[in-house]
Computed example of a mutant assay.
Amino acid sequence: MADEFGPTRAEMLAQDHVLSSLGGRTADEALEAGMPPKEVWTAVCDAFEVPPERR
């Protein structure tokens, strides 16, 4: 996430941005709950419209 959003923004998004595609969790919460990192990253990319070549 830091490569795409910068370290500060990535940390903030992971902690604070709730994603419905992650069951109403933040990225950090989803990872702590055992969701696969690739699934979490895909949800973040979808939410922020990260182009496929940077996913």
Rank of each mutant, 00 (worst) to 15 (best):
E49R: 10
L13W: 14
E39L: 08
M1W: 02
A30G: 02
F48K: 02
M1N: 03
H17F: 12
L13E: 03
R9C: 01
L19W: 05
R9L: 14
A14W: 09
A10K: 13
T42L: 14
R25D: 12
A2I: 03
L13R: 10
A47H: 15
T42V: 12
M35N: 03
S21Y: 05
A10R: 13
E11V: 06
G6D: 11
E11S: 10
D16H: 12
T8W: 06
G23Q: 10
W41S: 06
E29C: 01
E39A: 13
L22S: 07
T8C: 01
Q15K: 11
V18T: 12
R25A: 10
A43K: 08
V44T: 02
E53I: 13
E49C: 03
E11P: 00
R25V: 04
G6T: 00
A10P: 12
F48V: 00
K38E: 13
E32D: 12
E4S: 04
M35A: 10
F5W: 13
D16V: 02
R25W: 12
T42E: 15
E29N: 00
K38Q: 11
P52Y: 14
F48M: 09
P51M: 03
M1Y: 03
P51V: 06
V18E: 08
V40G: 09
W41F: 04
D28G: 00
S20L: 10
E39F: 01
C45W: 11
F5R: 04
E32S: 07
K38F: 05
P51H: 08
T8G: 06
V44C: 03
G6K: 10
P51W: 11
A47Y: 15
E11M: 05
T26I: 07
E39K: 08
D46K: 15
E32H: 10
A10L: 12
A33T: 05
R9A: 10
E11I: 03
G23L: 09
G34T: 00
D16L: 05
M12Y: 12
S21A: 15
A47Q: 15
T8P: 00
G24H: 12
E29M: 04
E39W: 00
G23R: 11
P52L: 11
R9S: 04
G34Y: 08
Q15M: 04
P7S: 04
D46I: 09
M12C: 02
L19G: 11
E4Y: 08
T26E: 04
D3F: 01
R54N: 06
D46A: 14
S20A: 13
M1D: 07
G23Y: 10
A47N: 11
L13K: 07
T42R: 14
T26C: 02
E32F: 05
E29D: 07
R55D: 10
G34S: 01
M12E: 14
G6Y: 06
L31P: 02
D16R: 11
V40N: 10
E11T: 11
C45V: 03
R54Q: 13
A43P: 09
M35P: 00
